[in-house]
Amino acid sequence: MANTILVLAEQLRGEVTDITFEMLGAGRKLAEASGSSLCAVLLGAEAAPLAAKLGAADKVLVADDAPWDLAPADAVAGALEAVMQQTQAGLVLLGCTNVAAGIGSMLAVKTGLPLVNFCRAAKAEGGGVVCTSQLFGGKIYSDVKLADGKGVVCIYPGAFPVDAGKRDQAPPIEKVDLPVAAPKVTFKQYLEPETGDVDITKQNVLVGVGRGIQTQDNVELAEELAQVLGGAVCASRPVIDQGWLPLSRQVGKSGMTVKPRVYFALGISGAPEHWEGMQNSQCIIAVNTDAKAPIFDGAHYGVVGDVLELLPALTEKVKAKKG
């Protein structure tokens, strides 16, 4: 296996994103199993202060001579190629995210290395690495072996624990100079999400409430949980009909189709019209007083109990966890 594993740290508007920690966690494991070192690459004009957060890496390489974070994919791929040569790295981890879209493919072509996309598990095995890719929207997994442990691996967001990539230690930081080419794509500006109501199709966490929430005041409890989780509240049709939430928050056949990382179905029975709108969520957590509610047939986790009791407790615990 290669001596150095590179992780392309990802940041969006001055914040290190979760995928970075997921990759660091995954990279850490691989590095330990194969006796390699883990090196994070952090790019961006104002990236330097963020480097301190990447304590899980053995070393952080920072390039802040240009607005690398908004540079086109081919430029970033070129920069990474240069870093690989400098560090003798053979394995590179990138996020399978919108931010990094295309960088992996381009890097693979430039270096002649194989690329493994949609990776949701990776382990070192006899000098190589076996990656598990989730294909066809997660319906099928394929294991791919990088025999010499060399390649470009795109890590699927949400597949690895974030915690494993966080360490309370300051990593050694090293500045690197990277080749800057005249870009054919230039960043102009950010376009903020349209104000008005939140777009529930774009949330990572949705707290869905159904008639089990009982009153408009109780919707507030769900709102609090959504807030601490950085998500939004949505609802089944009867709740919308009551006017407790606007129409734009309706999930289901006659509302929105959503695919968040986590979907809470709180006091929602799981009628087919509702199920249709949220069935593809990555993780569905159902809370219902009725142990026979159909929602439990499709959810990943179920709690038989009163949502009004659980909500405050959960909100507290999440707050505590987030610190």
Partner: peptide
């Protein structure tokens, strides 16, 4: 990008 945030680029 994510969560409804978009960027404008000239190509």
């Amino acid at each position: 990008f994510a969560g409804g945030l978009r960027g404008e680029f000239e190509v």
